[in-house]
Design a protein around this nucleic acid. Structure first.
Lengths: 214, 214, 214, 214
DNA sequence: GTATAAACGAGACGGTACGTCAGGTCTTTCT
DNA sequence: AGAAAGACCTGACGTACCGTCTCGTTTATAC
């Protein structure tokens, strides 16, 4: 399958070290240009010509590193996005998720949201982009989050019969939902209060206590 | 703001009834062509030229009805998608959501998923498309679902302090999450079992009963 | 074999009369632009981009009419060149050729020379161009010239055992030779005096009269 | 004026003898590559990249020796072409030219024609190439041929009032004409019979003997 | 023998033009 | 007056070479 790939990943022939080496300054300039143009005019309007012009670089220099615009964008965006919102660990799972999700919510409200949305958008018809996002963004976070869940189950804080992925879907799914598909005209907010409400709803469940005990 | 609009919406000059009337067969042929081409080659590859050719129609005939390709797609897709998965009402909220969400999951697994995904994707950088989806798809469903929730709270089945939108996010968010961003290579399934597990998780909550009581 | 072709020659599908017709003004603008750019910067430096820009025309409009730059040039140049130097008929063959060849020499000294040289140059590695020149320029002239020769032989002015093409080669060959391959630094002139000298040399022959009579 | 120059002509700084000397094998390989690529695909399609690849040589190694592709070609071709057809001397001018021109005609029919044509073609818009051909090819031959003519005039074989260059144009011009601009579809032949006919025509003149005597 | 110097292969660099394709508009003729 | 056809200008695409520029290596003379 076609794969989104990193700039240095494929120097044409794998084990070559002859010839002039790639110019790291050019690589940076391209990524910077892609990012700034994308933020200004929207990523869907990005063109190789435009990036090359802004970066002060020939088109070939871009094509030598990436096969198309979106591979550039993925690299540029991912470099910005990753580790903006790390998964935090607190005493309890509830606290851990509250803090981590507030971080995510905040980043979605800001630059990260602006960067991630067009990427996820494009990913709906670009399979390689889809897996790039999954690998570089989602799976990374899932791994840490699953560990937190596991510990919370072991410690007795959480029910033992939970499927970690279902839990994480229930917690983070709403955030992605609101990022991508706000369902009313007034931009649906991803506020800290929303995270609190969400955490409370999912951790405590929907059913009335009395009913649950019945 | 620019708006996605329907074919018949604007007969160029509002109150005209002279001249040759629009050919309904052409309209249908265009929508059919758009849909079939999109299913075959992916919607991102759709071109006005292509649709016109497939429909056996001049480009102008398309431009007379819609301002651009994506307006055509929205109309074509929405006609297919709407009322494929109605919101069902059962005795309890839990049963209602279980059945409704299984219907949604099923449609996501099939044609509807294939049609909805590129639309949502494109919506990430097309504001008018975004609101078209929200109005024609999401809000419709929210309305019915909120009513179910309200009744379940009144009947005592559910906690009284719930925010309906937060609840609906927690239930449906995961479905959209998995539709749009499967987080592992093996296509994450939207199976009926998944819906069951999700319902159980959210309805009962994450916390251990003893802990919750503490 | 690939063929240099005229603008109107192939309207894509032969018998079509629907659709917007080709714009004759565009065709003229392109030819004019090609000619003026060629005269200014040399024909070898002509680019489709440049012609399109100068003509105020899209590249496609050019490609719709001709397959490449040189087909444009042939058409532009030939329209200029043909009938600049018609084959003249005088009382005797000697007078006819003297006048005709002076006309050719003059045109070679001027614009026609400037236009024809790059064409002939390019023709050395473009077979279709070569035959285009032959058909539209050389054969045309040969036909009239052969007729003159034939009449002169019949009238007794010229030897009966001559091969017309060899004669025409001997007369015109030197002109082309000097046009294309001047053999000393000081630009070899194609003066009227040169034509007179050439005519005298070829008509009278090289051998001394006494020797010839011997 | 820019000048076509030989490989060894300019070792960058004249009087240097330190450093690694130019590799003669590389020079040969380049010329061989240029020639073989040119014969295969046509000289107009020659690229520095291609020659370098075929010769197994870096592009710099070429640029160190010649300023551009055509300088390479001139050197490669001239080395092949020169002294393929020397000017022969026989008892009479007529015999000398008959034999010399048959040699030229033969070489034009073969490899030399194939090599010379693109060179002459390119020379129509490359002034330095034009003078290179004139100096290395034409002038050389003129010198010897003029001497033959002079002797023939002195000996009384030829008319005394002839302009040698006009005579040579009349004799060789037709050969170049047919090499460069064959005027009918069936490749106009430069056969030995053609040379005989040409010699006869030009030496004896066009006019009927009676008419000439009148 | 160890500097110094230049040539070597490889290949990246900023560019220019290519020929194609799609966009959205305009201009025909036909119905 | 709408429809079908297709020409119009615009501008991006991805490719091929250009001629220049590093690289690290090799091969000579000079000290």
């Amino acid at each position: 399958m076609k794969k989104i790939h990193t700039a240095e990943a494929e120097p044409k022939v794998a084990g070559t070290d002859t010839g002039r080496p790639r110019d790291a300054r050019a690589t940076e300039a391209i990524l910077r240009a892609a990012l700034s143009l994308g933020m200004e005019d929207g990523f869907q309007g990005l063109t190789i010509d435009g990036i090359a012009a802004r970066a002060g670089v020939g088109k070939t220099t871009i094509y030598r590193r990436w096969p198309d615009v979106w591979s550039v964008v993925v690299e540029a965006v991912m470099a910005e996005v990753t580790q903006i919102s790390p998964v935090l660990e607190r005493a309890t799972a509830r606290e851990s998720f509250t803090d981590s999700m507030k971080l995510v919510a905040k980043s979605f409200r800001g630059k990260t949201g602006k960067l991630l949305r067009p990427l996820v958008g494009r990913a709906q018809f670009d399979e390689s982009l889809r897996s790039a996002i999954s690998e570089r963004w989602l799976l990374e976070r899932r791994k840490s989050s699953r560990a937190i869940l596991r510990r919370a189950i072991d410690s007795g804080e959480l029910r033992a019969d939970l499927d970690p992925d279902v839990v994480l879907d229930a917690l983070y799914g709403p955030l992605y939902h609101r990022l991508l598909l706000p369902y009313d005209g007034t931009d649906v907010r991803l506020s800290d209060a929303y995270v609190d409400s969400l955490i409370d709803t999912v951790f405590c469940g929907l059913e009335r206590k009395g009913a649950a005990a019945r």
